[in-house]
């Protein structure tokens, strides 16, 4: 099957400022790809290259098997811009209908269904929409023509938690129907529950592409164990993946890299009364990647 996105050595400079350097990436049909990185890392640059809003300095990019410069390809894509601007006195519904007509017609019932799901009021003039409601209108216009490929730049910004849940359900439905999603975020927590893979971009470079399950396995998590009696420190020393160990009377705390298996087996020899395991701090996953990158650079430079 043809990849939905095929990028090879894709590079974009704005004058001398680097936007994106040497991106090579394939996104397969039917997957949800989370695109992560801090603000200004190159996420939006990548997305705008895919949509032919900006043109690459170097490199190749194909979208849905065609040249990204072909306007017809954009008919098969739904796009939510990161900085969505909706202005004027026109009602949101009229604008959506206008976009729908250019896209070859969208049934009114589908607009209504989407508006209802996201709890959006389409009778408000666009210039008067709140940030959250603008985002809803943006999502509706991205989903309304049921595109093969959805490109969503920071989709959850400004949405309240309930609507975020509904949005994530919509993304899952898209995947279930075999269509493809690329969504960017600067917070992994926003995309981890729906993404199959995530790519992490930093300072214009793609530093990692990971399966989400694998990423979580690599996560550093903080664990606390409480026993019914004081435990000897030696019992927990030198366990695989255990770091920052502290043993104080009947309490043990540490961080673990990857699987908690060794720690659990060591703890099982005593009577555990209480176990606290914080959700993996996903920002820390980022930092782990980033510091590894730095370490590579640190090694490379003196050599």
């Amino acid at each position: 099957m043809t990849a939905v996105v095929q990028a090879e050595g894709l590079t974009k400079y704005y004058g001398r400022r680097r936007g994106l350097e040497d991106l090579t990436l394939d996104i397969q049909p039917g997957e949800v790809f989370g695109y992560l990185g801090p603000n200004g890392a190159g996420k939006t640059t990548t997305i705008r290259l895919l949509l032919d809003v900006i043109r690459p300095t170097r490199g190749l990019v194909r979208v849905l098997g065609a040249d990204s410069r072909d306007p017809a390809v954009r008919g098969r894509i739904g796009y939510l811009p990161g900085e969505l601007a909706l202005e004027g006195r026109e009602r949101a519904r009229d604008y959506l209908e206008f976009l729908g007509r250019i896209r070859g017609g969208v049934p009114a019932s589908r607009l209504d269904a989407l508006a209802e799901r996201l709890d959006a009021d389409l009778n408000v003039p666009m210039g008067k929409l709140s940030k959250g409601n603008k985002q809803k209108v943006g999502l509706i216009q991205a989903f309304m023509h049921e595109p093969e490929f959805l490109i969503l730049d920071e989709p959850t910004g400004g949405l309240d938690p309930l609507v975020q849940q509904e949005f994530l359900a919509m993304v899952r439905e898209v995947r279930a129907s075999g269509r493809t999603v690329l969504m960017s975020s600067h917070v992994l927590a926003e995309v981890e529950h729906v993404s199959d893979r995530v790519g992490i971009v930093r300072a214009g470079r793609l530093v990692a592409v990971e399966n989400v399950a694998a990423l979580r396995e690599k996560a550093v998590r903080r664990v606390e164990l409480h026993f019914d009696a004081p435990v000897p420190k030696e019992a927990f020393e030198g366990l695989a993946g255990v770091r920052d160990l502290r043993v104080e009377g009947a309490g043990v705390s540490c961080t673990i890299d990857g699987r908690p298996d060794a720690l659990i087996k060591a703890a099982a020899r005593f009577t555990v009364v209480h176990l606290v395991s914080a959700e993996p701090d996903l920002e820390e996953i980022f930092l782990t990647y980033y510091s590894e990158e730095d370490r590579h650079h640190g090694v490379a430079e003196p050599a």
């Binding site: 954009r74 969505l84 070859g104």
Partner: peptide, 12 residues
């Protein structure tokens, strides 16, 4: 004002 972004990504 940013509204051109959606228009240039239409299939036109």
């Amino acid at each position: 004002n940013g509204t051109l972004e959606l228009l240039v990504t239409l299939p036109v």
